[in-house]
Amino acid sequence: MWRVNKNEDREQWAWSPLVAVGPLEFGMRSDEVAEAFGERTIGGGERREGHEHFQDRGVMAYYTDAGHLAAVGLSAATGPQLTLGGIPLVGQPVEQARSQTVQRLLGYAEEQGLRFSWLPSGDPALQQLGLVVRRMQVGDAVLSRPLLMYSGWSWGGMWEEFIPDQEWMTSP
């Protein structure tokens, strides 16, 4: 059985696009990320090449080759909640392009004069904010899993070049 936290049971995180998400600031080193989560050592998360998984928190941290935080993925099932213009971004049904979440994001982008695009993976994205709304299979549902990036990755032309291979493995 898949555990999916309800919105009201999720930690609520603030987000400053291209700068920070929750307690994490883009550019932090791995030890600083662990410290932000109250871990005493780098071993707080499951560290692999280029990324670190904080499973208990529902957070995946991605690092540049120089070891600085460049992107944060939030688990659709257990990650903290994040909103954009009042739109919940984590754990929302996104099985189809016509889903309420995607339609609300389209409306928000239009209101704010932001460019809304679809990646070849079928994921909606707001490049100016460093946001890709990934999809994650959770039991029988397909739920939203935001990936938030720093400006160096979000403005790189082809986003797929910068998004680590591990992130593509979370697709439904």
Rank of each mutant, 00 (worst) to 15 (best):
P146S: 15
E52A: 04
F37W: 11
P164K: 09
M158K: 14
V142I: 15
V21F: 06
G27M: 10
V132C: 10
R98I: 01
G44T: 11
G113A: 03
Y108H: 13
D140T: 10
Q96G: 00
L24E: 01
S99I: 07
Q92W: 03
A125I: 09
A14H: 12
P23T: 00
P172E: 08
Q12M: 09
G50V: 06
G58W: 05
Q55A: 15
V4P: 03
G58D: 06
M136R: 15
A71G: 06
R40A: 08
S99A: 04
A70R: 13
S16T: 14
L89F: 11
Q55N: 13
V102P: 02
R10P: 03
L131V: 03
L74V: 03
G130A: 02
P164S: 04
V133P: 07
R135W: 00
L147R: 03
R40S: 05
Q128L: 11
R40D: 06
G45N: 06
Q100V: 07
G157M: 14
E160K: 12
W2A: 15
H53N: 04
M158F: 07
L131E: 11
E8Q: 10
P172W: 08
S30G: 03
L82D: 07
V59A: 00
N5R: 15
A34C: 11
V138I: 11
Q127F: 00
Q137I: 07
T64M: 05
R145F: 09
P146C: 11
V90P: 09
W13T: 01
A141R: 15
E52L: 02
M149W: 10
G45L: 04
V102W: 05
E46N: 11
G139N: 10
L106W: 07
V102I: 13
L74M: 06
Y63G: 02
R115H: 07
L89Q: 13
A20F: 01
F26N: 09
E161M: 15
E167P: 00
Y62R: 08
T41Y: 01
V94R: 10
A71W: 00
S99F: 08
L105P: 05
Y150K: 13
D65N: 06
H51T: 01
S16A: 15
A125H: 07
G44S: 11
L119Y: 04
A109V: 04
L69I: 09
E46H: 13
G73I: 00
E161Q: 14
R135N: 09
T64G: 00
E95G: 15
R135S: 08
E32M: 10
P93M: 14
A66K: 15
